[in-house]
Simulated scan of single mutants.
Amino acid sequence: MSREYRPGEIVTYPYLWAWQQDRGETEGRKERPVCVVVAVRSDRGGLTHLALLAITSQPPRADRLTLEIPEMECRRAGLSDLKRAWIVVDEYNYDIAERSYYLEPGQDSLGRFSKPFMMRVAATFFESTRRSGHRINRVD
């Protein structure tokens, strides 16, 4: 796979929630939009390591760390069909693009968040992962 992934890009992906993993599930139940928050190509092997954040139209529970996506950002991201949307930043799926069973080769992105909004998302994500962010490994 030679596609380049960039932070802020929105793609579809069968996201596996932490609660599903805790129940022993290994596959996401449906394709959903996700945001690439980290995309790092390693020097050894040239593999692209991804951290993917789920986007949901369901209002979040009070115990979840989320950011509501402003209407303009929804349009930029190709999510204008959603009346309201949130990006979940307290858990993420980790995958390797070139070895992924879940990323479709040659898949087009839906859109991309603006740099200012992505900086806010990334700062909140990194703070969350420092504290207790939950990584769901999708490379096994």
Rank of each mutant, 00 (worst) to 15 (best):
Y94L: 01
I55V: 13
N93H: 05
R131F: 06
R99G: 07
A54G: 07
R6F: 13
T56M: 05
N93K: 06
D95V: 04
Y5C: 05
W86P: 03
G106Q: 11
S114V: 00
D108F: 05
V38K: 09
V11N: 02
A122T: 09
I136M: 10
P7R: 09
V38S: 02
E127C: 04
W19E: 14
F113H: 08
F126N: 12
A18M: 06
Y13T: 04
E127I: 04
F126K: 07
P33W: 02
G8F: 06
R6H: 12
S57R: 14
V37E: 01
S80E: 10
I87K: 00
R64Y: 12
A123H: 09
T124Y: 11
M1N: 11
G111N: 07
L79V: 03
C35Y: 01
P59T: 08
Q58Y: 14
R131Y: 11
S109G: 06
S57P: 08
L47I: 13
V11Q: 02
G46N: 04
Y102G: 06
G8Q: 02
Y5M: 06
T124P: 02
G46Q: 07
V11G: 00
D140C: 10
V36S: 03
R99N: 13
R99V: 12
I136S: 06
M119S: 13
K83W: 00
L16V: 15
W17E: 08
Q58R: 15
V36Y: 00
D63T: 14
I55T: 00
G45S: 02
R120F: 09
L103E: 04
S128N: 01
G111S: 03
E31R: 14
L67C: 03
V139R: 10
C74S: 02
C35G: 11
D140T: 13
R84S: 12
C35T: 09
D95T: 06
L103W: 05
S42W: 09
P105K: 14
I136T: 14
E91G: 00
R75K: 06
P33F: 02
R6Y: 10
R112W: 02
E73G: 03
E91Y: 00
E25W: 10
K30T: 13
A85R: 09
L50V: 00
I69D: 00
F113M: 04
R99T: 10
Y92F: 11
D43F: 12
S42K: 14
L50C: 02
T56H: 09
R84D: 08
Q107R: 07
K83Y: 02
G24S: 09
